[in-house]
Amino acid sequence: MNVTRRDFFKITGASAAGVAVMGLGLDLKPFKSHAQTLKLRFAKETTTICCYCAVGCGLICSTGEAGAGKIINIEGDPDHPVNEGALCAKGAALSQLTNNDSRLTTPMYRAPYSTKWQKVSWDWALWTIAKRVKKSRDTDFEHKNAKGQVVNRTTAIASVGSSALDNEECWLIQALMRSLGLVYIEHQARI
């Protein structure tokens, strides 16, 4: 059955408000049962924690038959002690973050003075970035400051972000940047 975006919006809003859905002139039964069948027949369930605010609500992701395939549903985790299944509007829409046609899917490059993006390979992008980092760092590396004290740093490169990343990734960022000699290392916590 085809449910348009607008219809879905009405339905979710109306059900949340406890209004009889039949009042909308839509028979929800086939829609609901189809969704439920999908989940039960094919889904692999994986728990996650919401990626928005720091309440840390639990969610259950239902993934299609191929294991780490396409996500078909994300809903609140009723076993989670903080949210007990409840979610806000953002958490409830989380599947639209992952299944979204507007996502960036390939590395892109904008050359100096260019008016457009061009698609590039990961290999090219990462090697080119590594070379830029090395050149910028080595050109401006400061072994000693104006007072003659050892500082071993570069103030030619800065790094910002991110509290949207996992703990393990956060550690990697600060370690890599510090090993390069960066002192301008900041992120969302400062703002």
């Binding site: 956060c170 301008y184 969302q188």
Partner: peptide, 18 residues
């Protein structure tokens, strides 16, 4: 403190800060 980002506590604990 009601921290904003999902992992702003963790990113602060791991000190992505100057």
């Amino acid at each position: 403190a009601l921290r904003g980002e999902s992992n702003v506590q963790g990113s602060t604990d791991h000190c992505i800060l100057f």
